[in-house]
Structure formats: C-alpha cells, structure tokens
Simulated assay, not measured.
Amino acid sequence: MRAGHGALNRLQRFLLSRERFFPHSRFLAPAPALEPGISPRVSCFSFSTASNPINSPPAPSQEQGGREEPPRRPPSPASWIRAKLTDLGRDLKLVPPLARSLGLAGAIPFVALSPPIAYVLPLPELLSSIHAADAQAAYGALILSFLGGPHWGVAMASPESSSPVSFSGYTIATVRYVWGVTPCLLGWFAMLLPRSSGLAVLVSSFLLALAVDWAMAARGLLPGWYLPLRMLLTGIAVMSLGSTLLLLLAKDLPRRVESKIEAARKER
C-alpha cells in the first residue's frame, strides 16, 4: 500500500512540474494528496472545469474531430429595418411628451409642402402665389437654424471648465459656440441658391446636423432622449425635402436633354 502511495505521489509531482511547459494540460487539476488508508485506485485528477474557467479545455476544432457551429445568416434588410424601427419606437417613449408633441407638430409643414401633398391640400391664399418648393425650402432653412440653438444654450449654461471632454484639442464650449451659428449660415446660403441646389444643400445640412448631435450624444453631452427625437424629425425633413428635389430634377431633365441636343446640333 505504501509503495502504491509513493508511486502515485511521484507521478503527481511529475505532472505538476511539467505544467509550466505544457499550458494546455492545465485542465487536469490535481486532487489533494492522498491520505493513508485510501485505495490508490481512486483517480487523483479532476476533469471538472465548471469551478475554474481558466482550466477549461480548448474548443474542439474540425481537426480534432469536433463540430463547428454553422455561421449565422445575416438578417434580411426587411428584418433589420423592422428591428431598428422597433428600437427607435422604444427610445421615443423616453422623450418628454411636450417635446415630442412640439417636434412632430413642427414636422407637419415639411410633409404638407412636399409633393404630391402640396397639390392636394387647400393651402392658404398667401402660399398660392409662392412655389411650394420655395415655401418648403424657407421653412427648412428656419428649422435648420433652430438646430444650433440647443448647443449655444448649453454652452452658455455650463462653465467651460466643467467638462473635460474636448474635440481635437478644442474645448467643448468652443465647439458648441461655433457649431451653434453654423446651421444658420448654411440655411442662409441655401436660400441664395437656385431651387434644386438649395434643396440639396438643406438635405446635406440636416444630415450634417444629425451627425454632430450623434457625436455629442456619444460623449454624453446631450440628454439621452434628444437623439431618438432628432433621428425621427430629421428623417421626416430629409424625405420631404428629398422628394421635392427629385420632382424638380425630373421636371428639369427634359429641358437639359433638349439643351444638350441643341448644343450638339450647333457644333455640327
């Protein structure tokens, strides 16, 4: 019995000494030393890995005869869009009711002045002499200038030294002051351009404003409910302005084609 105990203890010390050189054998956790009176036929190793995740054996591969999990199929575009809309609807519940109501009410002119709704609704007589695209672009410029106001107000309310966050070496207050006036300039510049070019500038400016708000929210510099509301309202504004832009381009396409044909004839 003593000879069996001695041989078993020497084997155990040998495996423990080789554990430093063979890290994959660490899942063989040695059991406590055998006490006198215990049969040497009892196993001195424990293969249970639940108590120590470090000693877990590596996942079996195909070379070792294991079975790999089949790759997950990517979701279809329809299911991905449905999931994103579900997440957005859940996040919109966090928006204060008054802010949500005022924001949705402010999106009504975008929808009402977009084709073909603008040609169906009985608009006021004041707008009868104005092209619907011009009225929509003017309203878009006003709303775009409003998007810089929250950043200017937050910069005034919070001391510059209270936030350690910075953008490319500039303090957050400096970035907010500069960006607070940028949408106004972009909207004014869009109104100086022809209809199609002005609408294109407005669509790009709304997307840029959303990207800036996204960057601010990612750094915790905006309320958590503000970005979901901005995403919804920006989507409505961009789709409304984009539909008007596409209609103008479609109407202007035959004239451009005729002008190019006429120019080609003159060159001959």
Results as ranks from 00 to 15, higher is better:
91 D>M: 11
189 F>S: 14
124 P>Y: 01
153 G>V: 08
121 L>F: 12
14 F>Y: 14
221 L>Q: 13
159 P>N: 04
54 I>G: 13
118 A>G: 10
191 M>I: 09
235 G>S: 07
187 G>E: 00
75 P>M: 10
265 R>Q: 07
3 A>M: 05
94 L>K: 13
100 R>P: 03
126 L>R: 09
266 K>H: 12
18 R>C: 06
23 P>F: 13
179 W>V: 05
57 P>H: 03
63 E>C: 00
167 F>C: 04
73 R>K: 05
22 F>S: 10
112 A>Y: 02
72 R>V: 11
176 R>G: 05
251 K>L: 15
22 F>A: 10
230 R>P: 02
247 L>Y: 15
183 P>G: 03
77 P>K: 06
262 E>D: 12
115 P>M: 12
201 V>D: 06
80 W>Q: 14
17 S>T: 12
42 V>L: 08
268 R>C: 05
21 F>D: 15
222 L>M: 14
34 L>K: 03
131 H>N: 11
114 S>L: 03
197 S>Q: 14
97 P>G: 00
133 A>M: 12
55 N>E: 00
91 D>P: 01
232 L>I: 10
138 A>P: 07
48 S>M: 07
67 R>I: 12
254 P>E: 04
98 L>K: 07
32 P>K: 07
248 L>E: 08
141 A>N: 03
103 G>R: 01
195 R>A: 15
149 G>P: 10
234 T>I: 07
168 S>Y: 15
235 G>Y: 00
56 S>D: 11
186 L>P: 03
130 I>S: 09
